[in-house]
Computed example of a mutant assay.
Amino acid sequence: MDRSEVMRAVKGRDTTPERLVRGLLRSIAPGYRLCRRDLPGAPDIAYIGRKKAIFVHGCFWHGHDCRRGARMPKTNVEYWRRKIAGNGARDEKILAQYAAMRWGVLTIWECETRDKQKLAERLESFLRG
């Protein structure tokens, strides 16, 4: 499988981490909306009435500082550095837009979905606050 085929196989939504977060939210606070294109960055999960948005980021794609996010492909390194830096810059711009709209935003990193209990507590705290 060449690089193009691999990249085409990467899903943009309904990823395993997203589905896990949604499963936790169904018992904590149902009534969310998915991928609202009318909101900045089309958040993975949105609570319109509460003015809360949740983004579930892949560690590699958004440059998280965990082991998986720090891993860089061995080929075309400069392209990937620019791509990941651009994703990070876009994420910061989107967060600023939500701050201006007075919305709460929670970013869940892919690596954080391993500890379901801690993640559920974090989601509850975000939705209460």
Rank of each mutant, 00 (worst) to 15 (best):
F60C: 07
K74M: 08
R26H: 15
A120W: 03
R22A: 06
E78M: 06
Q97Y: 00
E5T: 15
C111Y: 04
Q97N: 02
A53K: 00
K118I: 03
R37S: 12
H57E: 07
Y98I: 00
R36E: 03
G88L: 14
Q97A: 15
S4D: 12
A120K: 11
S27K: 15
Y98K: 02
C59V: 06
T75G: 08
E110Y: 06
V21F: 06
I45M: 03
I84L: 06
S4Y: 13
P17G: 10
L25Y: 10
I108V: 15
K52C: 08
I84V: 15
T16M: 11
V56S: 08
I54T: 03
T75A: 11
A99C: 06
V77C: 09
A70I: 07
A120H: 03
Q97V: 04
P73C: 07
F55C: 05
V105C: 05
R102H: 13
S27P: 01
A89E: 14
Y32K: 00
R81M: 11
N87P: 07
K52V: 05
L24F: 02
Y79R: 11
K51Y: 01
N76K: 13
A85L: 10
L25F: 09
I84C: 07
H62E: 05
Q117A: 15
G86V: 09
G129H: 13
R128E: 07
Y79S: 11
S125A: 13
T16W: 07
R71C: 06
L34G: 00
C35F: 13
G23T: 12
R19Q: 12
Q97P: 01
R81D: 11
E78A: 13
A29E: 12
Y98C: 00
I108K: 10
W80G: 04
M72T: 05
G23R: 15
R81Q: 14
R81V: 13
A100E: 12
A46L: 02
V6N: 14
V77A: 13
A53D: 00
R90C: 02
R3D: 05
A70H: 09
A96E: 14
E18T: 10
R26I: 09
F60Q: 06
G104D: 06
Q97K: 13
R33F: 06
R8L: 11
A70D: 07
E92Y: 02
D14M: 14
D14R: 13
M7Q: 12
I45H: 02
M7A: 12
A99V: 01
R67Y: 05
Y79Q: 12
G104C: 05
H64V: 03
S4L: 14
R68T: 08
A120N: 02
T75W: 04
V6F: 15
A42C: 09
C59A: 05
M72S: 03
I84K: 09
N87V: 10
P30D: 04
G31R: 01
R82A: 14
K118F: 01
W103R: 00
K93M: 04
R26N: 14
I48H: 08
E5D: 13
G41H: 01
Y47V: 01
T113L: 00
M1T: 10
F55K: 02
I108A: 02
K51M: 04
G23M: 08
E18W: 07
L34K: 03
V56N: 03
F55P: 08
R36G: 00
V21G: 10
I45L: 01
W109D: 08
D14K: 14
A96L: 11
H57T: 07
E78G: 03
H64M: 02
K93H: 10
W61G: 10
A89W: 05
G12C: 04
A42I: 03
M1E: 08
